[in-house]
Amino acid sequence: MLKRLPSAFILCFVLLLGACSTTPASPPSVSDRHVVQRGETFYGIARKYGVSVPLLARYNPRVVPHRLQAGTELSIPVNKKEVAADRVPYTVQKGDTLSKLANHFAVSLSALKVSNPGIDYNRLKPGQKIWIPVRERTVTGFNWPLQNPRIFNGFGKKDWGLQKGVNLAAKKGQSVLASKGGTVSFAGEMRSLGKVVIIEHADEQQTVYASCETLKVKAGDKVQQRQIIGTVGFNTLINRYALHFQFRDRGTPLPPENYLPEI
């Protein structure tokens, strides 16, 4: 008959078994949201969740990857296999509304409704899957509207109300250049933005040049890339001479830093 083992030996044996059965740490569970922590990068977060940088950018079109700030909430794609060229799936989270999602994904409220027929737009339910009509944005051939541009305020640095863009440092009277060839759809005064030029480009894209001192074009004019369309004036948004510049895709302002050449 075996002798009774000391209790201390039995305890050590149990602990040893527990250590041997420990499995390696599993990758993070994929969720629909991620709050950026200090020191994290856009690339690192994409890698953490096993998604590509372009796909993560489609889910967060208003975020500037190289200027990621702690506390920013990112949407994370869960059903990667369901992503199509013209839409992406999204799982509704607590607190979501259709208007909030339209703003986050930079799509129109009407387009969001058309993509989700039969749902109660006023009562989204957490866990409910909806489709976001976010197409792959094709942006080519745009240049900055100033020689030797320098961003004074980047996109998202401050909320300018309905006017979302960047402010480019400039000298009084400096030439404003067309970012890309197109047709001038507006040239005139706008409240709080001074003299403004709006140019329509291919693929339902627009560029906006505000706080001009003088305008060199009129509505209906065809312009070539880098053609002088105005001169820089006093920017009342930041109380200095600077050009307020916007890039819009289907009418929605997006960060020019993501689509124009790196400064």
Rank of each mutant, 00 (worst) to 15 (best):
R4V: 14
R4N: 05
L5F: 12
S7F: 08
S7D: 13
C12L: 15
V14H: 00
L16K: 01
L17T: 05
L17W: 09
S21R: 05
T23S: 14
P24K: 03
P24Q: 03
A25Q: 14
S26F: 13
P27F: 03
P28R: 09
P28H: 11
S29A: 12
H34S: 10
H34A: 04
V35F: 07
R38H: 10
G44F: 10
G44K: 08
I45K: 02
R47E: 14
G50M: 10
V51S: 07
V51Y: 06
S52Q: 05
S52L: 06
L55A: 02
L55P: 02
L56V: 05
A57F: 06
A57Q: 15
R58V: 01
Y59S: 02
V64T: 15
H66C: 01
Q69R: 15
A70I: 04
G71T: 08
E73L: 10
E82M: 13
D86V: 09
V88N: 01
V88E: 01
V92F: 07
V92M: 06
L98A: 10
L98K: 03
N103L: 10
V107F: 05
V107I: 15
S108L: 00
S110G: 00
S110Y: 04
A111N: 07
A111L: 05
K113C: 08
V114G: 00
N116V: 06
N116Q: 08
N116I: 06
D120V: 09
P126R: 03
P126H: 05
G127T: 04
I130P: 02
I130M: 03
I132W: 11
P133D: 11
T138G: 01
G141M: 04
G141Y: 01
N143Y: 09
N143S: 15
P145I: 06
P149M: 11
I151P: 02
F155Q: 01
G156K: 08
K157F: 12
G161P: 06
Q163E: 14
Q163G: 01
L168D: 00
L168R: 08
A169G: 13
A170S: 13
K172E: 14
K172L: 10
Q174K: 07
S175G: 04
S175E: 11
V176K: 04
L177E: 05
A178V: 10
K180D: 09
G181Q: 10
G182T: 09
V184Q: 04
F186M: 03
G188Q: 07
G188I: 07
M190I: 12
M190P: 00
S192F: 15
S192H: 12
L193E: 13
G194E: 12
I199D: 01
H201R: 03
H201T: 04
H201P: 09
A202H: 12
Q206C: 01
T207C: 01
L215K: 08
V217Q: 03
K218L: 04
A219W: 09
G220A: 11
G220T: 13
V223W: 02
Q225A: 14
R226A: 13
Q227T: 05
I228M: 11
I228L: 00
G230M: 08
T231A: 12
V232P: 03
G233E: 11
F234C: 02
N235I: 07
N235Y: 07
T236W: 03
T236A: 07
L237H: 09
L237D: 13
R240W: 09
Y241E: 10
Y241D: 15
F245L: 07
F245Y: 15
F245I: 04
Q246D: 13
D249I: 12
T252C: 03
T252L: 14
E257H: 11
Y259I: 04
L260I: 07
P261E: 06
E262N: 12
